[in-house]
Design a protein around this nucleic acid. Structure first.
Lengths: 258, 258
DNA sequence: TACTGTGAAGATATTCACAGCT
DNA sequence: AGCTGTGAATATCTTCACAGTA
């Protein structure tokens, strides 16, 4: 909706690629570890290894931030930590609310990595009246009724949704209406939000399914030599099944493997 | 290490793009919802909306799987559910072990989405002897000592690591040595694995940091009109700081904003 | 010498736009 | 008429390879 205002005007060349942004936290973590070991400088090769990427990519990524290295030497660890933190907006602190204090919500509330890097759990919110007042990770859970007030009082702009899928969109709508503009969604559902609101999703079962795909392929490759034409035969059977009956209900799993 | 055996030989055109694979679970979820409402067919437009992508992308994605639609009509929901499930390897069931039964591990064990789609929690493993025998989500926790035996007895090829960062690599090594070839890592650390082992990572704080980046940029754009040259001034100050002293320890946060 | 920073090439991914089928 | 399936165009991301420089 609205005229596609997708392109950033950008006062200066403010165009850090999304793929690069997604890796900055990785670099930051590796750098923080080096910093704790008081390592003063690091080469792109070393840092790339620590972050699990290749060095050309890392250098290219850093080139979007500016020329923060020294040729022949490498990068100053402290300086880079600061620059990346600043680029990511972590030099300010972000109050965050977590909605849905079930197993996952509690795990998130207890997760140390939250607090360590610029994020502060401002409130825990749950729909269950029984939960109200109970402390989780030292923070008392508040009832959903208070949601709007909490957002407003704390100037919260980032919300985490850890509710069941059924409640997620409704919670999302309320968060957005109350002024939240970034949402991290753990509920296994697609959230619809207005323009200008960012949603990132974390979905456990999706990750597992992707792994299963590759796992299956590994197994297939092993069998390949022996099986040979078997797979193609199966594919043809499936195609035939489609061409033929294919009733709306369920004669589908005809070719279901063991 | 080893000669980069990255390219798949692929008996036939078994080349589904990674980006497509990553979306298949999304389509599958949307289709499952339609299936539960007994919707017989769906157009690319409708399904794309339900999955939160655009229809051209969805059609392109499906084109890699085969021609499973009907022009002028759409896709048969049940049939597509089956085809995607099969492509993802979900028509067989995958025993999974979860290592590290803290808050997060318990949340994962309780997560319904696991069991629903081809995955079965075969065992919960924790290093704490106190935990041993205690049931979580109805499954008794077993001690890390049993890890190899559990993997072997259950034919586990997918492992989930939900331990603290410090223990993750060690656990990973043991899982791999015991025969696990796919790992879902929740610990905030980079895992090193041999060729042929897949690792996917889920990192809560990384997701938040990416949100913070965009959030900051939104704020910046708002202020842009008024602030104007202020940001550039700050950038220059930072550059100057670098050119000048920039001692290895920490005069860095000189420009630290409030 | 030993490293960064970056154009240019190459690989992937997305989107367009329309031919082709039902 | 209404939809899918897909080449071709475009955009984005990665990698190469080397000039530039401390």
């Amino acid at each position: 909706m609205a005229t596609g205002r997708t392109h950033r005007p950008a006062t200066r060349s403010r165009g850090i690629p999304e793929a690069t942004v997604a890796r900055l936290p990785l670099y930051l973590r590796a750098l923080t570890a080096l910093s704790e070991r008081s390592v003063p400088t690091v080469s792109s090769e070393e840092l790339a290894a620590a972050a699990g990427v290749n060095s050309a990519k890392l250098r290219k990524d850093f080139s979007y931030l500016g020329s923060y290295g020294t040729r022949g030497v490498g990068y100053d660890v402290e300086y880079l930590v600061y620059q990346i933190s600043r680029e990511l907006g972590l030099t300010q602190d972000w109050p965050v609310v977590i909605v849905g204090i079930g197993n996952l919500g509690a795990a998130l509330a207890n997760y140390g990595g939250f607090a360590s890097r610029g994020f502060r759990v401002a409130a825990l919110i749950d729909a269950d009246p029984e939960m109200a007042g109970k402390p989780v990770a030292g923070i008392p859970v508040q009832h959903t009724d208070e949601l709007e007030k909490i957002i407003d009082d704390n100037g919260v702009s980032i919300g985490v949704i850890a509710t069941p899928a059924g409640a997620a969109q409704q919670v999302c709508d309320r968060l957005v209406a109350a002024g939240v503009t970034s949402i991290l969604n753990f509920a296994p559902t697609v959230l619809t939000v207005p323009d200008g609101v960012d949603v990132r999703k974390v979905d456990l079962s999706i990750e597992l399914q992707i792994l299963a795909f590759h796992e299956q392929r590994k197994a297939g490759e092993e069998a390949e030599a022996q099986a040979g034409a078997a797979m193609e035969a199966e594919a043809e059977a499936a195609a035939a099944a489609k061409a033929a009956g294919k009733g709306p209900d369920g004669d589908v799993p005809a070719v279901m493997p063991a």
